[in-house]
């Protein structure tokens, strides 16, 4: 019963957070040295005072700050994030073009990292001093310490250039036709970026899952399960794992913003046509509306990711279900 109520509550809260992001965006535009008009004027190679005033009025910059904020929020809720100075196109349009690529990369890397991380963690916890356990610990250390763009470049050198198993760049082969061949092509292109981005998070999740499993395996209820005469497999997979998962899922939820950050770097390395690439070009071009639009949408992705995490946690742990 409470499920829909909770969903509604969390969604409302997410919207409030988004609103806060908008206010932050707006504040940053206003705090940053130089504004739209200066940029446009600079682009035109200088402008007269009259023209500047005219542009100001056009952008509503002559109105009080609070009105400007109101206008800004209102426009965003109509999916209008303004016009890119650099590409001279509506920002929303460009973001919608590139969002799917980023979503695909972010979610596939997250899920891949979770599945592999949990499996490694569970097996490592079986023998805390075994070889696999040490390998997981080592892998976790290495995966965390290696800069993600560097890992990407190394994989690129190894598996695209030296041994040409995977494509060097892009998201699909434009020459193939038909849904299935295209999907396969995308999957083929996705492998290296996903592995690269996933590697950091496999490291994080396997490490936490191992620790969480070890703690749960020492708990009273696992002793109870053993006292029932259950097989080690049942004890681990049925009784321990489900209790060890919540911390890992919680961590994964908190990592969404880090995954998106990593995606920016990975997209740059693999020329993956997502938001990250767009972000970099627009930052280098000082294309403020586009940058802030991307920040807004990636915050939205994080919020949705957190919402999903919340729902998964509720599914796993009955004790969370009771709470509003």
């Amino acid at each position: 019963m409470g499920f829909l109520v909770v969903l509604a509550q969390r969604t409302l809260y997410g919207l409030l957070l988004l609103l806060a992001v908008l206010v932050l965006n707006f504040t940053m535009i206003n705090l940053a040295p130089g504004d739209v008009v200066d940029t446009i004027a600079a682009d035109m190679g200088g402008a007269s005072a009259e023209l500047v005033a005219q542009i100001r009025a056009e952008y509503g910059l002559d109105q009080p700050v609070i009105v400007q904020l109101g206008n800004y929020v209102w426009r965003v809720f109509q999916f209008d994030l303004g016009q890119s100075y650099f590409y001279n196109r509506p920002v929303t349009e460009m973001i919608f073009e590139r969002l799917p690529a980023t979503l695909l990369l972010v979610f596939s890397a997250q899920i891949f990292a979770l599945v592999v991380g949990i499996l490694l963690g569970v097996f490592a916890a079986q023998r805390p001093n075994g070889i696999l356990s040490h390998i997981v610990t080592l892998f976790a250390l290495f995966g965390y310490a290696a800069p993600v763009f560097w890992t990407g470049i190394l994989l690129l050198i190894a598996f695209s250039l030296k041994i040409p198993l995977f494509p060097v760049a892009g998201m699909r082969d434009v020459t193939v036709e038909g849904f299935l061949p295209q999907a396969l092509s995308v999957a083929h292109h996705l492998v290296l970026p996903m592995l690269t981005l996933g590697s950091i998070f496999i490291a994080l999740y396997s490490r936490l899952c191992r620790a969480s499993m070890l703690e749960v395996l020492g708990s009273d209820y696992v002793r109870t399960a053993k006292a029932k005469g259950l097989s080690p497999r049942d004890v681990t997979m049925k009784h321990a794992l489900k209790n060890a998962l919540p911390p890992v899922v919680t961590l994964a939820g908190l990592q969404f913003s880090a995954v998106i950050s990593g995606a920016v770097l990975v997209e740059t390395v693999f020329s993956w046509p997502g938001l990250g690439q767009l972000a970099l070009t627009s930052i280098l071009a000082r294309d403020t509306p586009t940058i802030l639009g991307i920040l807004f949408f990636s915050a939205l992705v994080v919020i949705v990711g957190n919402l999903l995490t919340d729902l998964v946690l509720r599914l796993i742990d009955p004790r969370v279900r009771g709470k509003a």
Binding site: S219, D220, Y221, R223, T224, A225, A227, H239, K242, N243, I316, D317, P318, R319
Partner: peptide
């Protein structure tokens, strides 16, 4: 042979 333990609060699996 069945066994019961000291801590009833923690001896049952919380997720089942």
């Amino acid at each position: 042979i069945g066994m019961i333990f000291q801590e009833p609060m923690t001896s049952l699996n919380p997720v089942y």
